[in-house]
Design a protein around this nucleic acid. Structure first.
Length: 292
DNA sequence: AGTTCCCTGAGG
DNA sequence: CCTCAGGGAACT
């Protein structure tokens, strides 16, 4: 489940392996992967050099010399890996970018077919030329605490839904939303408007600290995620609540609970992450008494 | 703002 | 068999 730290790790591992190399044959093995641009546009990349590799939210962006760009979204099971050329019969292989030097090639694998690629021409420069990039909210690691507060202040939506919403803030998925909310001591179902400035400041610090720690550990591998070298991440071992239903909270020992928020599993400690009691989230004793 | 769907492999 | 996982689009 590549979120910001995983995509950042992929980008960092890919960069020294492909930047500056001249593109050779480009083979699209599964057509629907290409969601913008044509096969002809892809073929037009042959002979051009890779100018750089970057990240925006959960998307990896490969810049082509002369102005074009390839934008990748790995969704849940996508992998962007550099490896030695080979026949490797692989039914999940979706795209192969070879290089003129005949050495390693860039491969896009995706077990489920949710991932996609956009091929943008030199005329489509800037984020405004690309809907998928233009609609993204700010980068959490480049957002100060005042700006972070302003994203959530007065909003009626639940804080977890807002963290997952890429238009509010880019790059956070289910794992880092839960880990950040735990670190900040905020219940996932809390309405954003019910959080005070101090809560939001703690959340801001938690999000940034956890994303940075995960990047240092090479991201989280739950099932399929690997970096550009094909290596698994290490941060899954440091998850405190995600995927740990029924296990003791590392802070207080209470059993980690799981509820559904924004259509996703949400793991949290019912004691360390209290819901605001006055908002009706906890059963009102008066209501219970009224029934009998 | 919640639900459904896309897709496939893993686990029950 | 069945259900679940999940990012995000497309519904309601």
């Amino acid at each position: 489940m590549p979120e910001l730290p995983e995509v950042e790790t992929v980008v960092r591992t890919l960069r020294p392996r492909i930047v500056g190399r001249t593109i050779g044959e480009v083979r699209l093995l599964w057509k629907p992967l290409l969601r913008r641009g044509s096969v002809r546009d892809l073929k037009a990349l042959e002979g051009k050099r890779i100018a750089g590799v970057g990240r925006r939210g959960k998307m990896a962006v490969v810049d082509i010399e002369g102005g074009g760009r390839l934008v990748f979204h790995l969704k849940m099971t996508g992998q962007l890996v550099v490896g030695e050329p080979g026949p490797a019969a692989d039914k999940h292989l979706r795209l192969v970018v070879a290089f003129r030097d005949g050495r390693s090639e860039l491969r896009f694998r995706d077990i489920r077919k949710f991932g996609f690629m956009l091929c943008l021409g030199p005329d489509e420069r800037g984020e405004s030329a690309c809907r998928e990039l233009a609609s993204l909210g700010p980068e959490p690691l480049e957002t100060g605490k005042e700006a972070f507060r302003r994203l959530f202040e007065g909003r009626k939506a639940r804080i977890k839904a807002m963290l997952l919403d890429q238009e509010t803030i880019a790059g956070i998925g289910n794992i880092y939303a839960d880990e950040s909310l735990f670190a900040a001591g905020v219940h996932p179902a809390t309405k954003a408007a019910d959080l005070g400035a101090a809560d939001l400041d703690r959340l801001h610090a938690a999000v940034r600290r956890i994303l940075k720690m995960s990047i240092e550990a090479g991201g989280s591998t739950i099932r399929n995620y690997v970096d550009g070298d094909g290596r698994s991440g290490g941060y899954q071992r440091r998850h405190k609540v995600y995927g740990r239903e029924g296990e003791p909270c590392p802070r207080c020992g209470t059993k980690i609970a799981r509820i559904r928020v924004a259509g996703r599993s949400s793991f949290f400690c019912p004691r360390c992450q209290k819901a605001p009691a006055s908002k009706g989230w906890i059963k009102e004793p008066a209501e219970q008494g009224a029934k009998t």
